[in-house]
Design a binder for these strands. Structure first.
Lengths: 257, 257
DNA sequence: CTGTGGGCTTGATTTAGATCAAGGTGCAGT
DNA sequence: ACTGCACCTTGATCTAAATCAAGCCCACAG
């Protein structure tokens, strides 16, 4: 059964990590500019004060642990800025990143009383934090909220299935191409016109752990795509897509000749 | 947004495949002996007639297509007997089985208007079929039903994450050991005592497509485990686990010496 | 500036698992 | 009871990606 009420004590090691930020007032959610991209949008304007009361907004530096694998599941998060990585590990340290939670994404849901995954900030991240009881209340009081959450989990499951196809059956080249396209955003600039940009706040290690490869293979594959003129590097952690069609063909093995 | 109402016409190629079985009466759900293992349990006894009316029970031979990748998402299924395989494919035929839906499992949920995955029966399967509108109604009329469904999808997501760890980071040996243990059921017989049995209704091809391996590697690995005395074959499509501890250690790479 | 370390790239070599190939096994249909 | 075929096993060889190894780039502390 999902989200049964359970003990509410926040372990001290969690409390230590979470730094309450300024501006935590009653109209926080009303003013939140990413609301429409998240589950919070399921609650109407008049009642947003309740939502603001039920959650706390936090700002977290890169590399902060939000969720520790196997620790009691007491908190849930909505990402309002930055990127969070979700992962699972093996005893010997091998790690699989199961997803990146960007702006608007909800994370932490579990049926068990402990988290079956870890979560860590990639860059500077803003989250709204809900306790288990607060989330329970929202679910029962706002059917639209629950419906929206069901939609979000359903979507995450579809993405997970896509990623299983990638991990089980795609080549390194296909994996990297798929990854770049999945993270692509089209930037419309007055000078340049349409620009397909991929922002990569995470390290090569993270990309490798997400794609089930080694950093060397990721590096080599990106270099090869650049050499072939399909992509180009931007300033820091970014990539510009030059040959969208070819890259799209590449994701499913229809290699151009 | 999840499960918005949409056009209701069942494509003829689906209708052809689905054979209505006998005994589709008002008390079908009340008498259903797997109810407690499924989402249907969220609806109380008095109202089960409504559920029986909202769904149709079908019996399907092995190899029947329940859901075609990319086709309009009009139907949802609850498995009441047998095993269904869920998968995604690439244009060149490579396939990844993303999960096996056994008794009690619900399948077909999607946010999009088309299915992003395929589903096919492994053995003889019984399902209860809901139309999109019927499911919509149940979700809005029975909050417990929706909550239970959220729990089920959340659980499926956790399993998907576990499978991503397997596909991205485990060796062939670890994958096979994980698979066998995940499908293990403990049979308590008067003569034999406790017996750990794995029933494998699916073919080697299916197992390979689930574990991201080839049939040859699956076959070789199972043979190796048998040679080492960790498992033994039963009559047909079954395996008996002889060394549970060792197999458990194997799933996460803690090889016994 | 200058050393230090984290992150990235590139090259050489190895290897786990894929691919290619050849039977074996068992049951469904005549 | 024979035969055809789908499914499985085992062996030989190949290869994509891992591993091992070296050096580069650059942000930051001293």
């Amino acid at each position: 059964m999902a989200l049964e009420p359970q003990t509410q004590n926040t372990p001290t090691h969690m409390r230590r990590r979470l730094v309450l930020s300024a501006g935590d007032d009653i109209s926080r959610c009303l003013l939140c500019d990413i609301r429409e991209h998240s589950v919070c949008n399921a609650i109407n304007d008049k009642e947003l004060a309740i939502l603001a009361h039920a959650s706390k907004s936090l700002s977290l530096p890169p590399g902060t642990t939000l969720v520790e694998e196997g620790s009691p599941a007491t908190a849930f998060f909505n990402v309002t800025a930055g990127t969070v990585k979700l992962f699972k590990s093996l005893p010997d340290g091998r790690r699989q990143i199961t997803g990146f939670a960007d702006v608007g994404h909800f994370l932490g849901l579990t049926n068990s009383s402990t988290y079956s995954f870890g979560a860590e900030t990639v860059d500077t991240v803003r989250v709204c934090r809900f306790s288990r009881a607060e989330l329970e209340n929202l679910l029962t009081d706002y059917p639209l909220f629950e419906r929206r959450l069901l939609a979000e989990v359903t979507d995450e499951l579809a993405q997970a299935q896509e990623q299983m196809l990638l991990l089980g059956r795609k080549t390194a080249r296909e994996r990297v191409a798929s990854f770049l396209l999945a993270r692509m955003v089209v930037h419309s600039t007055p000078e340049q016109g349409e620009e397909a940009i991929v922002s990569l706040p995470m390290t090569r290690v993270d990309i490798a752990d997400y794609l089930g490869l080694t950093i060397e293979t990721v590096s080599r594959t990106i270099s090869a795509l650049r050499r072939e003129g399909l992509i180009a590097g931007t300033d820091h952690h970014g990539i510009r897509i030059l040959a969208l069609q070819k890259l799209q063909a590449l994701t499913s093995g229809q290699e151009y000749s």
